[in-house]
Simulated assay, not measured.
Amino acid sequence: MASKGLLALIVVLVIILAVSFLLGPSVLNMQGGTPLIGGGNSSVSTVSSTQSVTVTTIVATTTVTTTLSGEGTLSPVDLFKKVEGSVVAILVTTPSGSAQGSGFVYDNSGHIVTNNHVVAGQQSISVTFLDGTIVSAKLVGTDIYGDLAVLSITNQSHALKPVPLGNSSALQVGEQVAAIGNPFGLSGSMTLGIVSQLGRSTTGTGGYLLIDLVQTDAAVNPGNSGGPLLNMQGQVVGVNTLIFSQSGASEGVGLAIPSHTVRRITDSIIKTGSYNHPWVGIQGVDMTADVAKAMNLPEAKGFLVLSVLPNSPAATAGLKGSDRQANIGGQNVPIGGDIIVGIDSITTRNLNDLLLYTERNKSPGDTVTLKIIRDGKEMSVSVVLGVRPPPAG
């Protein structure tokens, strides 16, 4: 029986230049790198050696515990004992077969957090606790752009033990973390590692840019998707989502959605069934030295707007896209659009800076002030953020 992929396995090869800033239906990728869904009982999404992927460095109706990192460090043994009743295996049936993933208990109302790509296309969902108890679950809502989903246990006779959310903003490179999930269907597996880096961005399984990710070398494999990444206080600091691999298994580079993002999106899904991302509506590339030279600029900084989507907040604000081309390295490259070098009081070096600030701090309807360079002169433009449109089709 055919199965879907659940843990996205990405081969990191080169950094592509073309991306989109809060674009809408998809991430602009001028050099290819479309994820491919593989077979097996767990989700596998790979990019071949000739492809490339982007790599750049509300209120809930129930109470969710949030505590700070650094309090009451546990041994790995005690950490596992603390959270083993909170981590679950998720089995999904779809029109094309079945798939497995992981998740964790979010609150006492029976909400389970996992990845969107774990439950995409679901016809039925079952949740298995480590003690073997199996219960049915229904889908509350998803956020395809953030790759998160919330389930609700329909039979709450099983005692629930929510795992508290930690403060991912307090994480430090080198801090020890643990991943717990169901790699290859092996339930309740725990691995240890460290935080390798913070603020990573890459293209996820749906082709959408995932930002602000936590990089870890804790081993995660197909079936770990949706499971918790924990600090040594037993608090969730991330949701394991992707690995970069050439072999299809862990090679020490995993990415997790940070807990501050998980909290914001999950609480919105519980309350409204969805999450609205802020949207500007532009496409472009990070500036390079060659492009800066072609535009007669003294330095390469900021994000070059190549096109402005019709009827978008950017169009309403009067942002301008590329109006000419230049021959760079034997290729015609679009240049001449606005260059975004700041947002509100924040200097932005590239797209990643823009995305991090906007997603962390802003909501649809908020007004931001973009500092741009147009025709060699700095100026400011006010943009009222919109709601990112759903994917086309």
Rank of each mutant, 00 (worst) to 15 (best):
I373P: 06
L210R: 12
Q325V: 14
T56Y: 01
I257M: 00
A315D: 02
V113N: 04
S75C: 05
F21A: 00
E175M: 10
V53W: 04
A137I: 01
S152G: 10
G386V: 06
G121N: 08
V83D: 08
V59L: 06
Y145I: 05
T261E: 10
S157E: 13
A300K: 04
T203P: 06
P95T: 00
M287C: 07
L9E: 00
L17D: 09
S268H: 02
D212M: 03
N311Q: 12
G254Y: 06
S124I: 09
G273R: 05
L210Q: 13
V236I: 04
L304A: 03
L319N: 05
A60P: 14
G85K: 09
G254D: 05
V291K: 08
V64N: 03
V177T: 03
G342L: 02
P313I: 10
N361G: 05
S109W: 01
V47P: 08
N240F: 03
T54D: 12
T142Q: 13
N224S: 13
G199F: 09
T142N: 10
G336F: 08
L351P: 03
A120F: 05
Q197P: 02
I125L: 01
P258K: 12
A89S: 15
A179P: 03
D323L: 10
S380D: 10
L229A: 10
V341G: 07
G72Y: 12
W279T: 03
G141W: 08
P228L: 10
I340E: 00
N352S: 11
L304Q: 13
K377T: 14
T94Q: 07
F21C: 04
V214A: 09
L9D: 01
D212H: 04
